[in-house]
């Protein structure tokens, strides 16, 4: 589970959005896969990811026992070890990178580790090709995202869509994305604070905080 396919944006908008994920297949290569999934994540954290996830939690998770002082001191540090230790069952593990260089370096190490798991890269078509080429790996299969079909006009504007669809399971609601964008525009939250709030809603850890920060900054600049 990651569902990164239908992130909203043009190819240029994915210049800082590379998701690499590993997935075992039931009955094919899931036996004894837990150490391999952990190894995959350990390789990823060596290459400065923006986020990682294990299907149950991302590296910036909700906090369930806050005290009143938390309103001034929210935790915004990303916890890699908690995610890695939290891999308990076969499933998808993932890491988000913000440059081709870091994604390619990570992918090179993954190839060398020869884990035997299916590994996918979710980004623009060309970005993925380039990462593969730089490591001497040919693509096996490709799934293209066709444009969202919305004949009944349900969807919000492109900025809200871009922020919201970075949680592919739809856990970042349009209203929450809009609220965070408004709070940034009104100067009630910094883009970093707004991004931390949005990132906590994505349980798979595939939300890209760097891309979200850029989108919020762009929205703030637009109004000037």
């Amino acid at each position: 589970m990651t569902n990164t396919l239908h992130r909203y944006g043009l190819a240029q908008s994915f210049r800082d959005d590379y998701i690499i994920f590993a997935i075992p297949s039931r009955g094919i290569n899931d036996e004894g896969c837990i150490p391999k999934l952990k190894e995959f994540l350990r390789i990823c954290i060596k290459h400065d990811p923006a986020n990682i996830g294990n299907g149950n939690r991302g590296s910036l998770a909700p906090e369930k026992n806050l005290g009143p002082a938390a309103h001034w001191e929210r935790k915004d540090s990303y916890e890699w070890e908690e995610v890695i230790e939290g891999v308990e069952k076969p499933g998808t593990v993932s890491a988000v990178f913000t440059s081709e260089e870091s994604a390619a370096a990570c992918f090179r190490d993954i190839v060398a580790a020869d884990l035997g798991l299916s590994v996918n890269i979710s980004t623009s078509v060309e970005n993925a090709k380039q990462v593969g080429k730089s490591c001497g790996i040919n693509r096996h299969s490709v799934e293209y995202a066709l444009a969202l079909n919305d004949p009944h006009d349900h969807l919000p504007n492109s900025q809200i869509l871009a922020l919201s669809t970075m949680c592919g399971h739809g856990m970042v609601s349009f209203n929450m994305a809009r609220k965070m964008m408004d709070m940034v525009r009104e100067g009630r939250r910094t883009p970093e604070q707004a991004v931390a709030t949005l990132t906590r809603f994505c349980p798979c850890g595939i939300y890209n905080p760097e891309r979200a920060r850029r989108l919020l900054e762009e929205a703030r600049k637009e109004q000037k």
Binding site: F14, L117, V119, N120, I121
Partner: peptide
């Protein structure tokens, strides 16, 4: 289409 999920064939 601009985005894709690419299986790199390592499985």
């Amino acid at each position: 289409f601009s985005r894709a999920k690419t299986n790199m064939g390592l499985g």
